[in-house]
Design a protein around this nucleic acid. Structure first.
Length: 429
RNA sequence: GACCCCAUCGUCUAGCCCGGUUUAGGACAUCGCCCUUUCACGGCGACGGCGCCGGUUCAAAUCCGGCUGGGGUCGCCA
């Protein structure tokens, strides 16, 4: 029975790298019908925070993963001390300066890594390692191996930053008479520039991506693409499908640079693949949670707006930004509309208002017909009327097709907004 | 500095294990064309890569070695 674990430390939020390690562990367990254990490494009482723990758990769930067991190292201190005592009794550790040190002799250590093959350490930098700190709390390397052994973890899948911890851990397993698990060190995720992930690189916590309006399925899909490939040139793949295909030895050895562009693309793919009805629910939830949805907006109306924008947004937040004028009446003319606003065609727009107000069926076909007829009678090209009209209706230079926009906005609002532009010209000229 | 890991388009990758089937495939980004009332979507196309040097071999992106480059670790943090 495969038993793997993900061992986050609640001293910070779940970030991209951790999420991906968690994902690979979960996938491996589920693929092999094994068990996935969560172990909270909260031995640093000072820095561990409940707030972080909650968000880590929340993020894991949000990404669609579940766990079979959960342990907290802070509740197991007696156990670690007991095993430290065993090492002392065996003469493999000693107490000094108030702490307990595991002592080991220089020897060759080999790791048979599932992803990298054989890794050989011919020397180690030290000959002792603190296992119980002078305040009585255990150190990471020690509880890690005691727990992995006691929890019957047989596959340790973790970031490659742990490779150099592995030899001393193996020495500890042996000293305690434990079997060593199989190791698989997954590559690190690099910053977009290829270097180390840093605080400077914006939103790195999973929660922040959720906040920005990335879909959990897209997030998982993108994370999957970093260091693993489903083959057959597949880019879009669900957790469920990945569960069938995932094998730990298919994971790459090379570090992968994070790409916001590709994440955006994956997210837009998921946005587009959702039915408008479902996407409307998603967007409604998103906006409500952020208190960005005016109560005047009905579900039916929102659905029509979503239909207009679903192909042109990358994130849910994009919807909020781009569709602003569809949800609120207090919009501004954006900076880039200046060139259009400079050409005062208030008389022509007034004529457009007059003619549109005669339409009884305010649907896009009828609107287009009347609109084009108006343009022609004014001796204007359609687009010379379209652009100012779009600015009038949405405050923006770009957006969905004008006639669809008008239909969704409705006659009353359209006329009011066109008049607003005419007023604007009267005031500024 | 010591130890360790890694090395295919700008980025993510397929191919590498089991050398010839590869004019090295796909995706993102970029650029161009088409569609078009704008943007986006979509369609078509372009650009662009096996880090370098040796070796093994009839044949190397694929095997071996070195170099270079990038990354990680050297905490009574995890």
């Amino acid at each position: 029975m495969v038993r793997v674990r993900f061992a986050p430390s609640p001293t910070g939020f779940l970030h991209i790298g951790g999420a991906r390690t968690c994902l690979f562990n979960w996938l491996y367990a589920r693929h092999h019908k094994g068990q996935f254990i969560l172990r909270i490494e909260d031995t640093d009482l000072e820095r561990s925070k409940k707030e972080y723990l909650d968000e880590i758990l929340e993020s894991i769930k949000w990404l669609g993963m579940d766990w079979d067991e959960i342990f907290y190292q802070s509740q197991r201190f007696d156990l670690y001390r007991e095993y430290a005592k065993k090492l002392i009794d065996k003469g493999k550790a000693e107490q000094k300066e108030g702490a307990v040190f595991f002592k080991y002799e220089f020897q060759k250590v080999e790791i048979d890594d599932l992803i990298r093959g054989k890794i050989v350490f011919t020397e180690l930098p030290k000959s002792e390692e603190v296992i119980i700190k002078s305040d009585g709390s255990p150190t990471y390397n020690f509880c890690c191996i005691v727990d992995d052994a006691l929890m019957n973890i047989n596959y340790v899948i973790r970031g490659e930053d742990h490779i150099s911890n592995t030899p001393k851990q193996i020495l500890m397993y042996k000293a305690l008479g434990f079997d060593t698990p199989q190791f698989a060190h997954v590559p690190l995720i690099l910053s977009p520039q290829g270097g180390r992930m840093s605080k400077r690189f914006g939103a790195t916590s999973i929660g922040e991506y959720q906040e920005q309006g990335y879909l959990s399925k897209a997030m998982v899909n993108y994370l999957l693409l970093l260091g693993w490939s489903a083959g057959k040139n597949r880019e879009i793949i669900t957790l469920e499908e990945a569960k069938e295909l995932f094998e730990i030895n298919d994971v790459n050895k090379t570090g992968a640079a994070f790409s916001q562009d590709k994440l955006n693309w994956v997210n837009s793919e998921y946005l587009k693949s959702q039915s408008t009805k479902d996407l409307t629910i998603t967007i409604e939830d998103f906006l409500m949670k952020k208190n960005l949805l005016p109560s005047s907006v009905s579900k039916d109306y929102l659905e029509k707006v979503v239909e207009l924008f679903k192909e042109r947004i990358n994130t849910l937040n994009d919807f909020h930004i781009q569709a602003h004028a569809f949800l609120h009446d207090d919009y501004e003319y954006s900076e880039d509309t200046k060139p259009i606003l400079e050409k005062n065609i208030s008389e022509q727009i007034q004529e457009l208002i007059n003619r549109l107000s005669t339409i009884t069926t305010f649907d896009k076909e009828t609107i287009e017909k009347e609109f084009r007829a108006t343009a022609q009678s004014l001796g204007l090209k359609a687009k010379d009327l379209v652009h100012p009209a779009r600015v009038a209706l949405s405050g923006k230079r770009v957006g969905p097709g004008l006639f669809e926009t008008m239909e969704v906005l409705g006659k009353e609002r359209v006329l009011k907004r066109l008049e607003r532009l005419v007023d604007y010209w009267r005031r500024t000229s």
